[in-house]
């Protein structure tokens, strides 16, 4: 689209939307330094709540769990999802259409349904709920997002650079590491970023697959609200 300056009303409107988006976050930040506990009235500046937070071993454990789950699920989903993106973008094979549509399921199914189905499944196979089930579930919903993002970025990938690499004497493996992967890296990174964000932000799937023992930051925060 053109770079003509947007109309004044459009700029004002957009500014207000940004205010709407940032207002809650700003309020949270400001009031996290408030001495008063319950009231939304500014009483004075304090770091007290951060001290309480960092001394709360439960919160720290939940934070560690959250990061661990996000890290592992991102790593696994990025590797597997990138492979799937390469397969779907560059190859035709039996079962192509089926896999492609299955990949969309976690995107178009309400989270609550996915959550209860995983809960029911783990219960059926008598798999102890905990960090492992949370991580497995996060991988499950992250794979499609990674695959779809990487695939979108693969669009327009010039296959001849791989041929050029082989032509210049690199075998398939060297070609992948030296040419293919560096070329698709921006796509892979944005897929990984998305996966990490989704995993950190997830409440619903975690809620159903956590079981009594394991807690993550979102669950902890929910119980405190």
């Amino acid at each position: 689209m053109s770079e003509k300056k947007p109309a004044l009303w459009l700029r004002i409107f957009s500014f207000l939307v940004y205010v709407y988006i940032y207002l809650p976050i700003l309020i949270l930040i400001v009031f996290s330094f408030n001495t008063q506990k319950l009231n939304i009235r500014w009483e004075g500046f304090t770091f007290k709540w951060y001290e309480v937070l960092f001394n709360d071993s439960n919160v720290m454990l939940a934070t560690r769990n959250t990061l661990l789950i996000a890290f592992i699920s991102t790593l696994v989903a990025t590797v597997i999802g990138t492979m799937a993106a390469l397969a779907l973008q560059r190859y035709r094979f039996p079962g192509y259409a089926l896999t492609e549509s299955v990949l969309y399921i976690p995107v178009i199914i309400p989270e609550v349904v996915m959550g209860i189905s995983l809960l029911a499944f783990f219960a059926l196979i008598k798999f102890q709920l905990g960090l492992v089930t949370i991580t497995l579930s996060h991988i499950a919903f992250n794979i499609p997002f990674v695959a779809l993002v990487v695939r979108a970025r693969l669009h327009g990938f010039d296959k001849s650079i791989e041929e050029a690499s082989m032509d210049l004497g690199a075998n398939e493996l060297t070609t992948f590491w030296r040419v293919t992967l560096p070329t698709i890296m921006p796509g892979v990174l944005s897929g990984a970023m998305l996966a990490f964000t989704l995993s950190l932000d997830d409440y619903v799937i975690t809620y159903f697959t956590a079981g009594p023992g394991a807690t993550t930051l979102p669950l902890r925060v929910f119980s405190m609200v």
């Binding site: 597997i80 397969a87 190859y91 079962g95 896999t99 990949l103 399921i105 976690p106 029911a120 499950a140």
Partner: peptide, 22 residues
């Protein structure tokens, strides 16, 4: 085709077990 299947199979297996079966 074999290359494609090799690349998709981890995803296919994972999705089968943790999405389709549930």
């Amino acid at each position: 085709a074999f290359q494609g299947i090799a690349l998709i199979s981890p995803t296919a297996i994972y999705m089968l077990i943790l999405i389709i079966l549930p």
